[in-house]
Amino acid sequence: MARSVWARPFLYALAIAMSVFFLMPVYVMVATSLKPLDEVTLADMWKLPSTIDWSSYATAFDKLAPNFWNSILLVVPATLLSALLGALNGYVLSKWKFKGADTLFTLILFGMFIPYQSILIPLIQFLREIGLYNTIPGLVFVHVVYGIPITTLMFRNFYAAIPDEMIESAKIDGAGFVRIFRYIMLPLSITGFVVVAIWQFTNIWNEFLFAVTITTSDKQPIMVALQNLSGSQIVQWNVQMAGALLAALPTLLVYIFLGKYFVRGLLAGSVKG
């Protein structure tokens, strides 16, 4: 489309117009969150704050800090465990294939597409039974289990790119299952771990359904607390927007600094083979 004289300016105009659409919510979020209370009126919604007032961040932080901490306690172990499990599964399903391995893999994969509503009632009964209902470890367990399909998929595709000859020659040299994993696969897996960890971190941090059904009040992760904050009528808009920004900050930072790996994860999880 680079032929005619007007084409280039038109393309830039389009790109800028679309950027405005994508950035508009961010502008409103940031501008509102920095406004003093008396400027948070419906009529002044689109105006910049006259002075920068951080007090809504202080209020939002006060309300959300415990839940923010809950989310960290949830997301760190859940991400590490599910990445490790995915690496092992991906290793077995790509380099130690047995008869029916592909069918088994497809059956595992189905688990990442199901609506979790369809397992939620038994899951909660089960968690109550074993005493993990309304606990952070309970949520960690849930995210590790239902993270198996996606992490296995990502690592399986990642390991498929490592040539089988390397494994075969290691076998001839007498290396076994564990040694090959430890000395050949793991050193080549750094990128794989980064991609999977970023993907799981983002998804678990942002997840809402498990969080809102498995935990109550003081055990709730950040997204449930944010939803409660915005659901209550008495909380001002500037505080809500500050809260939304605080809740979004960790995944936004990850995206800003490691966006390349985030997109790789997205493609690895959607396009198979």
């Binding site: 508009m24 942002n206 944010l226 939304a244 995944t251 995206y255 997109v263």
Partner: peptide, 26 residues
């Protein structure tokens, strides 16, 4: 990056912000 970044956000954050953007009186 501008087109991609919303994917890193939670649907809850998106919901909270757009609830206000589409608020009929504002």
């Amino acid at each position: 990056n501008i087109f991609f970044f919303p994917m890193a956000l939670s649907f809850v954050v998106t919901g909270v912000v757009w609830q206000w953007l589409f608020n009929p009186s504002t």
